[in-house]
């Protein structure tokens, strides 16, 4: 990972699952993820890392691929939670996610349903080579 991106990581979170509140809990004063230069953004052009989590249907998958196309060039993907790693928990069109995994390369996997906030910080530290 280039050193410029390592000291200023911008993260975009997509999806509507329960992992979302655990990821945003790291912004609080107890964990304070901003110590490592990590910011949460809401526009695709600014983001370096795309986090995918939660439930998706056909429309949602095309939206995520659209966001991934709009991101600028050094870009990575982190997959969080067992809904994305395995299949949809409520059994709707489970082949869609394997299509997603074939089209883009996923760089890091975080298991758990939902994972703890410390696990997310650990993944970011390991990803940027500072563990």
């Amino acid at each position: 990972m280039p050193s410029l991106a390592r000291s200023n990581l911008n993260i975009l979170v997509a999806g509507l699952g329960c992992c979302k509140q655990e990821i945003f809990a790291t912004q609080g004063a107890l964990y304070d993820i901003q110590r490592f230069g990590v910011n949460f953004v809401s526009t695709a052009e600014d983001a370096d890392i795309l986090v995918i989590q939660g439930f998706y249907n056909k429309k949602g998958i095309t939206r995520v691929l659209n966001i991934y196309d709009r991101m600028s060039s050094p870009k990575w993907i982190i997959a969080v939670g067992s809904c994305v790693l395995n299949e949809n928990l409520f059994k709707l069109e489970s082949k869609l996610l394997s299509q997603l995994r074939n089209k883009v390369a996923i760089n890091m996997y975080i298991p758990g349903c939902p994972p703890r906030p410390e696990a997310f910080i650990y993944a970011i530290l390991r990803f940027s080579g500072r563990d």
Partner: peptide, 12 residues
């Protein structure tokens, strides 16, 4: 144990 993050799916 909760620190679980892996680079590839095989290690899970």
């Amino acid at each position: 144990k909760y620190q679980l993050a892996e680079y590839s799916e095989k290690n899970l």
